[in-house]
Simulated assay, not measured.
Amino acid sequence: MLALALSAFVFNTTEFVPVALLSAIGDSLHMKPTDVGLMLTIYAWTVAVASLPLTLLTRNVERRKLLTAIFVLFIVSHIVTGFAWNFTVLMAGRMGIAFAHAIFWSISVSLVVRLAPPGNKSRALGMLGMGSSIAMVAGIPLGRVIGESLGWRQTFLMIAGVATVALPVLRMTLPKLQSQQTGSFSSLPVLFRKPMLASLYVITILVVSAHFTSYTYIEPFIHHVGHESNARITYILILFGSAGIPAAICFNRIYPHQPGQFLQACVFAVCACLLVLFPCALSIVTLSVHTMIWGGAIVCFGLAMQAWVLKLAPEATDLAVSIYSGLYNVGIGAGALLGNQIANGFGVSWVGTFGGVVGGLGAALCWLALRMYGRAHPSVH
Rank of each mutant, 00 (worst) to 15 (best):
L4F: 05
L4D: 05
A5I: 07
L6H: 01
V10Q: 10
N12R: 03
T14H: 03
E15P: 15
A20C: 08
L22C: 06
G26I: 10
G26F: 08
P33Y: 10
T34R: 05
D35M: 10
A44H: 12
V47W: 11
V49I: 15
L54Y: 12
T55D: 03
N60D: 10
N60K: 08
N60A: 08
V61L: 15
R64C: 06
L67P: 06
A69E: 04
V76R: 12
V80G: 03
V80I: 10
N86H: 03
T88W: 07
M91W: 06
A92I: 14
A98N: 12
H101R: 12
V109G: 11
S110P: 05
A116S: 15
P117G: 03
G119M: 13
L128D: 02
S133M: 00
S133D: 02
S133Q: 02
V137T: 14
V137K: 00
L142R: 11
I146Q: 11
E148C: 13
L150H: 14
G151M: 11
G151I: 14
W152E: 01
T155A: 11
T155G: 13
V162Y: 15
L170Q: 00
R171M: 04
L177F: 07
L177S: 02
T182H: 07
T182E: 13
G183S: 05
S186L: 10
K194G: 02
I203W: 02
I205V: 15
V208K: 09
H211R: 08
H211I: 07
T216D: 07
Y217I: 05
Y217S: 03
I218R: 04
E228C: 03
S229L: 03
R232S: 07
T234D: 01
G241N: 01
A247N: 04
I249T: 05
N252P: 05
H257S: 12
Q258E: 14
A272W: 08
C273G: 14
C273S: 15
L275D: 13
L275Y: 09
L277C: 10
F278D: 09
C280A: 13
A281W: 10
L282I: 01
S283D: 10
G296C: 06
G296M: 08
G302D: 06
L303G: 01
M305C: 06
M305P: 00
M305T: 10
M305N: 06
W308K: 04
K311I: 04
V321Y: 10
V321T: 14
V321K: 02
S322I: 05
I323G: 02
S325N: 15
I332R: 04
A334F: 14
G335H: 00
G339C: 05
N344P: 10
W350Q: 07
V351H: 09
T353P: 10
F354M: 07
V357K: 14
V358E: 04
M372T: 06
Y373G: 00
P378I: 00
